[in-house]
Design a protein around this nucleic acid. Structure first.
Lengths: 247, 247
DNA sequence: CGAGCACTTGATCGCTTTCAATAGCTGTGG
DNA sequence: CCACAGCTATTGAAAGCGATCAAGTGCTCG
C-alpha cells in the first residue's frame, strides 16, 4: 500500500481546506455524514494516482500537495489539462472510468470519498451539489482561459501567463495583498511547464532565460522565482495589466 | 428590437430540445414553473448576443442555430472557447457579468430565462441544478479535449479533429448510426474554424485543400463536406480510430 | 568520483504565419 | 445585362518562430 506520510488528523473542523473544498458550504451535520465515508490517502511525488481509462472507485479533494491532469496521444505527445492544487476536486460523479491520468507532482495527501456513497450523499444534500457546480464552473472558466493561452499566445507570453497564474494563486493562499515583489517556488519541472503550455522543454528553458535577462523575473536556483513588478509580468503575458479578475 | 423569425410555439412539450437541455430532467410541474419565466429571442447571423463584460440579465438555451463563445486579446487576437449548438446552455448562474463574447454564427433562436428567477428556481428544484452540473461537466471534458488539440496537434490534425467532431455531432442529431459516408454542411467560415483551432485562415484553407487532395474528405462548394471513411478521418486527427467515446 | 537527473545553450530544420495576388460568388445599380 | 464592389476562399512566396537534434553544465546521491 501507499501511505508514506505521518498519520493525518481526521476531523473536518481542523481541515486546512475546510472552507474552499467541495464541503465548504456544509453544515456540521452534513460534515458528520461526509466524515463517515471519508478516508485519507497519501501519494509520493511522481506516483500516478489514477490511470486514464481505469475504473474510479473514489472521488476526493486535494488536501496538500500538487497533482496534474494529463492527456496522452498514442504516439506519446502529452498535454496537461488541469493543475490540481489544495482544495481542488478530483473525479466525476456519475461516470465510471477516469478520462485523464492524474499524477502527483509533489508528495500529496488526498481526502477521498467512496464514489457510490458520495453520489448518494450528493442527492440528499444540495449544498454539496451546489458547491460542486460552482467549482466546476470555475474550472471551466480556467480551462477556457487556458485555451486562449494555448491557441494564440507566443512562447514568451505563455511562460509569462503561467508565472502570473502561479504567482496569483500563491498570493491568494499566503499573504493578502500583492504589494511589493512576489516570491514563490515553481511547483513544476520545465517538462511539466512545457506540457502545460504546449511547448517543448527547451523552449520553456530559453524563454525563462530570456525573461530573466530582461529583468521581468529573477531566478535563484532553478525553481525560486521573484517577480519584481507584477504589472510588467502581466504585460508580457499579453493580459491587461490592471488586474481585472474575469470581469 | 430583434425578432426576425416567425412566431415560435411556446409549449415546452413540443420543444425540439426538451430532452437534452437544462430542463431535460424536469417533471411537468417544474416545466410549468420554467414556462412562467421563459421567453424566446431571435438573433440574426453575425449579431452579437452578449458582449464580454456586460451585465447579463438572462440565461438560456440554444433552441436552433449556432453561436460561438470567443475571447479577444487587446491587440485583436481571438480564440473561440466554445461552440454552442441546440440544447447548449448560455450564461452562468451566480455571476453578474459575461466572461466571453457570444456571437450568433447562423440565425438563432434562444429560450431565455430571467436570471434572478432562474437562480431561485434552481435552489428549489434540484433536478435543474443536477442537469446543469452534468452539462457543465460535459463542457469541461470538451474543453479539455480541445486543449489537447490546441496544444499538441499539427494543423492537419486540428482540421481533421474539428471535422470529425462536427460530423459526429451531426450524426447524433440526425440519422442514428455512422454507417456509410457522412455528409454535412460546415456551420463555420474558414476564419471561424481558424479561431477555433488557433490557426490562420490561410492555413485552414491549405489543410482543407490537402485533405481533399488526399481523398480524406470531398468538397462541393466551400461548405458541403462528405466523409467517405470516418475511420480514416479519425486517424488523420491523431485519435484512436476505434471510436472510443471518452473511455 | 561517477551516474543520473534537471536544466541550459547552440545550430539547424521545417511548419505555420505573414504578405500578397487571384478566383469565385452575390447583390446592387447604371 | 453587365460592371463593379464586397466578401469568402484559394494559392504562392518568403520570413519567422518554435521544434528537433546535439552538447554541455550543475546538482544530488550513492
Amino acid at each position: 500500500m501507499n501511505a508514506p506520510g505521518p498519520t493525518i488528523s481526521a476531523t473536518c473542523s481542523d481541515c486546512p481546506i475546510r472552507h474552499r473544498a467541495v464541503c465548504a458550504q456544509c453544515e456540521s451535520d452534513e460534515l458528520e455524514q461526509l466524515e463517515e465515508i471519508k478516508y485519507y490517502r497519501s501519494f509520493e511525488a511522481g506516483q500516478t494516482i489514477i490511470w486514464s481509462g481505469d475504473k474510479m472507485g473514489f472521488v476526493g479533494s486535494v488536501v496538500s500537495g500538487i497533482a496534474t491532469l494529463t492527456q496522452t496521444m498514442e504516439d506519446g505527445r502529452t498535454q496537461m489539462v488541469g493543475l490540481l492544487l489544495p482544495s481542488d476536486f478530483v473525479g466525476r460523479p456519475g461516470r465510471e472510468g477516469a478520462a485523464y491520468d492524474v499524477v502527483a507532482t509533489t508528495d500529496i495527501v488526498m481526502c477521498c470519498f467512496r464514489k457510490k456513497p458520495f453520489e448518494d450523499l450528493m442527492v440528499k444534500t444540495p449544498r454539496i451539489a451546489h458547491r460542486l457546480l460552482e467549482m466546476t464552473l470555475d474550472e471551466l472558466d480556467a480551462a477556457r482561459e487556458w485555451m486562449l493561452v494555448l491557441g494564440r499566445k507566443t512562447a514568451r507570453e505563455k511562460i509569462a501567463s503561467l508565472l502570473s497564474i502561479i504567482a496569483r494563486r500563491d498570493a491568494s493562499l499566503n499573504t493578502g495583498g500583492p504589494s511589493g515583489p512576489m516570491v514563490f517556488d515553481l511547483p513544476l519541472t520545465r517538462e511539466a511547464m512545457a506540457d502545460y503550455l504546449g511547448l517543448t522543454l527547451e523552449t520553456v528553458s530559453r524563454q525563462m532565460s530570456a525573461l530573466k535577462k530582461d529583468g521581468v523575473i529573477r531566478l535563484e536556483g532553478k525553481r525560486h522565482v521573484t517577480i519584481p513588478d507584477m504589472g510588467r509580468l502581466m504585460e508580457e503575458a499579453g493580459d491587461d495589466s490592471d488586474g481585472g479578475f474575469l470581469v
